[in-house]
């Protein structure tokens, strides 16, 4: 049998399985924004240099402007909209960004938050240098880097407090 081109893409987006009858060569960024109305993901440079369009694929940050949607068939995508439900508590990284005021114009924030989420999920601890290196693909044209780095440190603190609280609750 001759291999056929694919015509639809099945992908789990923010926990929901979607069957998308879109051009598989369309960028994931455009599918999110235009077909699914998920406009929290921003387009900055459109060539993988600024990180504004960062989403997580299977937990790992990628530039959605460089991903064709056909290549995420069968994978899981998390966008900023899926990080916390509207009526639920914020994700510790979101809470940390708010606490530290790590937001100026806000355009880079969804991407920066998602990269930070993958960092705290994948590495149990990170010093300032490791944070800066990991976050180097997220540019902030307002140059608010110091507060973004502080927010990631705070996110680690919130997570360790929550773990401690969880342990204490168990002991009771």
């Amino acid at each position: 049998m001759q291999p056929k081109p694919i015509e639809e893409v099945t992908v789990t987006i923010n926990g929901r399985k979607e069957r998308l009858a879109v051009d598989p060569a369309k960028r994931l960024l455009d599918v999110l924004r235009e077909d699914l109305g998920l406009t929290g993901t921003k387009e900055g440079c459109g060539k993988g240099e600024c990180g504004a369009c960062t989403v997580l694929i299977d937990g790992r940050p990628v530039n959605s402007c460089l991903v064709l949607v056909g290549s995420v068939d069968g994978h899981e995508v998390l966008t900023i909209e899926g990080l916390a439900q509207p009526d639920a508590a914020m994700h510790p990284v979101q809470q940390a960004f708010v606490e530290q005021g790590a937001i100026q114009c806000g355009f880079c924030t969804p991407g920066a938050v998602l990269t930070a989420v993958s960092l705290v999920d994948s590495q149990p601890a990170a010093d300032e240098e490791a944070i800066r290196r990991y976050m180097a693909g997220n540019l902030c044209r307002c140059t608010g880097y110091t507060k973004i780095v502080s927010a990631v440190k705070t996110a680690y603190e919130i997570l360790s407090e929550r773990k401690g609280a969880g342990r204490r609750k168990k002991e009771c």
Binding site: G48, R60, P61, V62, N63, L66, T115, M135, G137
Partner: peptide
């Protein structure tokens, strides 16, 4: 190469 996001792809 690139940064975290690029290295993942």
């Amino acid at each position: 190469v690139g940064a975290t996001q690029i290295q993942n792809r």
